[in-house]
């Protein structure tokens, strides 16, 4: 009996040996993980429309460029707290053709991580505009446009989601309206939020929430913070998008001597404000839970001293005061 001469011996060892090794390296761990993963307390299963949105996300191959995993690394703190197995417990097989949980973790970050996109960019208007043509809101983006998730109609019905496309990207005639697929996809994207982990011991301290990325962005890196949190709507040049997202350059609130309304807007968001005769229906998110006082001060300072603005600077203490004042 020899591997060199007995083909049945050789092939059996190859075949069954590999099955045994696969149990150790894949099937065993997968079963263990499956049996020991629980959804996080406070998390909700996907709604039917979010599920349809996930199907669009998978069909369009978004995972080719977007990850949904935050690693326990300092460089990943900008995307949220480190991901836990329980974060993915609600991912279930989509249908008979895809009888596995979809692979949303991804392996490439050509575009940003989407783990908490629903927190970072909760504006539906922005999401629709960005899907219709990413260059409309992010000029340097290389993401594909998805115009087939929208319809161009002559007269939008009352219940339609109208997308305020800037003229440079708008069709020559008609109004851009989100299709069911786009609405489902945006519902899914906005549902992507991290549930706070309840630290139950010293080991979990690192995974506490919300992660204050203070260390990561200590100091007055207002420009970076602005770029990460504000520029997607207000644009790098501070001029916003006409009629959709207001300009910050020479904005009355931004250049006012009293910084309190400016700080309050960043802390608590805004919707439906009328600025210089133009009303802006798109909602601005609140950053009170996402950013520290020092970070908000850095952003506000950056906005008050850029694009021709010359307003008095603020400190973290000013932000703390507004935060407290509003809380009472």
């Amino acid at each position: 009996m020899s591997f060199h001469k007995n083909h049945w011996l050789l092939f059996s060892v190859i075949f069954f040996g590999y099955i045994a090794l696969s149990w150790i390296a894949a099937i065993g761990p997968a079963i263990w993980v499956q049996d020991h993963t629980r959804a996080l307390p406070g998390s909700a299963p996907m709604t039917p429309v979010e599920r349809r949105g996930l199907q669009v996300y998978i069909a369009e191959g978004c995972i080719a460029c977007h990850t949904q995993q935050v690693r326990p690394l300092k460089m990943d703190a900008v995307w949220g707290r480190p991901s836990a197995p329980g974060d993915y417990a609600h991912l279930k097989p989509l249908d008979i053709w895809q009888p596995y949980a979809p692979a949303v973790l991804g392996s490439e970050r050509t575009g940003p991580d989407l783990t908490s996109i629903g927190t970072r960019q909760p504006s539906e208007t922005w999401q629709y505009l960005h899907l219709y043509n990413p260059r409309a809101v992010s000029p340097d983006s290389v993401m594909p446009a998805f115009p087939w998730l929208f319809e161009v109609v002559a007269n939008a019905p009352a219940d339609a989601v109208v997308v305020p496309v800037p003229p440079a990207y708008a069709p020559s005639a008609g109004t851009v309206v989100a299709s069911d697929k786009a609405r489902a996809l945006v519902a899914y994207l906005l549902s992507l939020k991290q549930v706070p982990l309840r630290a139950s011991g010293a080991n979990n301290a690192a995974a506490g929430t919300p992660v204050p990325p203070e260390n990561a962005t200590a100091g007055a890196e207002g420009a970076t913070l602005y770029s990460n949190h504000c520029a997607s709507c207000h644009q790098a040049n501070g001029r916003g998008l006409a009629g959709v997202f207001p300009s910050l350059a020479n904005n009355p609130v931004v250049v006012a001597d009293d910084p309190a309304p400016h700080i309050a807007t960043v802390l608590h968001g805004a919707q439906g404000r009328t600025i210089e005769g133009m009303t802006y229906p798109a909602a601005m998110p609140a950053f009170a839970d996402q950013l520290t006082d020092a970070q908000i001060a850095a952003i506000v300072d950056h906005e008050r001293s850029s694009w021709g603005n010359q307003a008095p600077k603020v400190t973290a203490k000013d932000v703390a005061a507004v935060r407290k004042g509003e809380a009472k």
Partner: peptide
């Protein structure tokens, strides 16, 4: 085979192997 990849991370374990 779908039996052991019914939630996010169990699927990920198989995906890495595969």
């Amino acid at each position: 085979l779908p039996f052991y990849q019914q939630n996010g991370i169990s699927e990920t374990v198989i995906q890495g192997y595969y």
